[in-house]
Simulated scan of single mutants.
Amino acid sequence: MANPDDTPKGQHFLLSPECRTLTVLDLAKMRDTTAYNWFKRLRWHETEGEPYCPKCGTLRCHTMSRDRFKCTEKTCKAVFSVTSGTVFHARKLSFKKMLIAIWFSANSVKGKAALQLSREIGVQYKTAWALLMKLREAIAWRREEMVLDGEVEIDGKYAGGHIRPENKAEDRIDRRLRKYQNMKRLCALAIRQRGLGGQTFTRIIRDEDSNAAWAAVRDHVSRDATVFADEHGSYNDLAGLNELQRVNHSKAYQTDDGTNTNQVESFFSRVQRAYVGIHHRFSLKYFDWYVAELAWREDCRQVSNRNHTFQVLGKALSRPTSRYLCGYWQGNKPPDLIWEG
């Protein structure tokens, strides 16, 4: 008899059992000690969960009360925990509740709203918002060393700055004209690598201009890669960096020889669904982190939800304490996350 869990040939990954390897029922039955051990193994993965001093690096540490450790080196004597110096610094939630919150966030295909998470794990909206933003900031750091190769597509998407039109048609004005805009619109520049396992680089800019496109391709695309772009004039200068192929979208979505930018447009459709259906709007101040998180979700769409959870938790434990979000509700605000050149 055939196993009913066997994935039929050609079945979408999200419909297969390989996608759902960790459920909320598994987390509900988990003890807080087990969740704590997961944190330890991902924080100190080099030593398989054995704690070492974050200051001097020695393994000679002894366990104190309240899950704290103390370095035994005479010149150090540092006291630390599994979350010290990470984005979870000064945490108040239990390890199990934080793990469940990470699972809910990672398991959401188009992002997680803080208000919904606050109801699901029983915390204040402020707590849920700060936790999700810390995770987004940790995920966004992956772009720093990103270099795309092979065939890549580049495009930009504008968001924000909507002005409600007047009630009467005769009172309405053409908001497409620059003089009638409120200058709050931002552009999400995306460079997406084709193929399974390809990565997506994102950057928030004020306008889709040649300087931003040039700098992004120069720093994050291999010189051997082929770049595909639409007819926008800001991509003309890329011919001096890489082999450039264009498609004129005013005539066709795809040329006769197959040139297109369909994959980066597919990513923008995910951004649009998250903007409209999940968050209803993005705070433009943190637009960069929202888009970077969605790019990570796009790149990991063929990964099980267990690995999703481990990836997010591992990235959060490997990043230092956020200088922008630690003490956010006490007045510590980050600057505008917009690339200025």
Score class of each variant (00 low, 15 high):
285 K>D: 08
137 E>L: 12
316 A>M: 12
37 N>T: 13
333 K>V: 11
200 T>C: 08
25 L>G: 14
61 C>V: 15
78 A>Y: 08
5 D>P: 00
264 V>K: 07
14 L>S: 14
187 C>M: 07
28 A>H: 13
229 A>R: 03
280 H>S: 13
90 A>E: 12
243 E>M: 11
103 W>F: 13
1 M>W: 09
145 E>Q: 14
118 S>A: 15
301 R>F: 06
186 L>V: 05
331 G>S: 09
313 L>C: 12
204 I>E: 04
340 E>S: 15
140 A>C: 05
289 W>D: 06
140 A>M: 03
179 K>A: 06
177 L>F: 12
240 G>Y: 08
10 G>N: 06
154 I>N: 02
131 L>V: 06
307 N>G: 01
113 A>R: 10
222 S>V: 11
244 L>R: 08
101 A>V: 10
238 L>W: 04
184 K>L: 14
214 W>Q: 01
172 R>E: 05
305 N>F: 05
329 W>Q: 11
127 T>V: 10
218 R>P: 07
173 I>D: 01
104 F>Q: 09
207 D>I: 11
126 K>S: 10
64 M>Y: 11
21 T>N: 05
253 Y>S: 07
338 I>N: 12
53 C>F: 03
312 V>C: 04
232 H>Y: 09
113 A>D: 14
53 C>Q: 03
322 S>Y: 02
62 H>T: 14
96 K>R: 13
2 A>R: 13
205 I>W: 03
40 K>V: 03
67 D>P: 02
57 G>I: 12
128 A>F: 03
189 L>G: 01
137 E>W: 11
318 S>P: 07
283 S>V: 03
4 P>Q: 05
77 K>T: 04
201 F>K: 01
55 K>M: 11
197 G>F: 03
204 I>W: 02
103 W>P: 04
147 V>E: 10
97 K>H: 04
58 T>I: 04
245 Q>D: 07
252 A>L: 04
299 D>Q: 13
290 Y>M: 01
96 K>L: 12
277 G>A: 09
136 R>S: 05
322 S>F: 01
227 V>W: 00
256 D>H: 05
259 T>C: 00
76 C>L: 06
119 R>H: 12
226 T>N: 07
157 K>C: 13
209 D>M: 07
155 D>G: 09
323 R>E: 14
290 Y>V: 05
145 E>C: 04
200 T>A: 03
22 L>W: 06
22 L>Y: 04
332 N>H: 13
41 R>G: 04
13 F>W: 07
43 R>S: 00
139 I>P: 00
77 K>M: 02
232 H>T: 00
337 L>E: 14
88 F>T: 12
26 D>V: 02
302 Q>V: 09
226 T>W: 06
225 A>F: 04
22 L>M: 10
87 V>F: 00
181 Q>K: 15
125 Y>K: 08
213 A>V: 06
143 R>V: 03
222 S>G: 12
310 F>Y: 08
331 G>R: 06
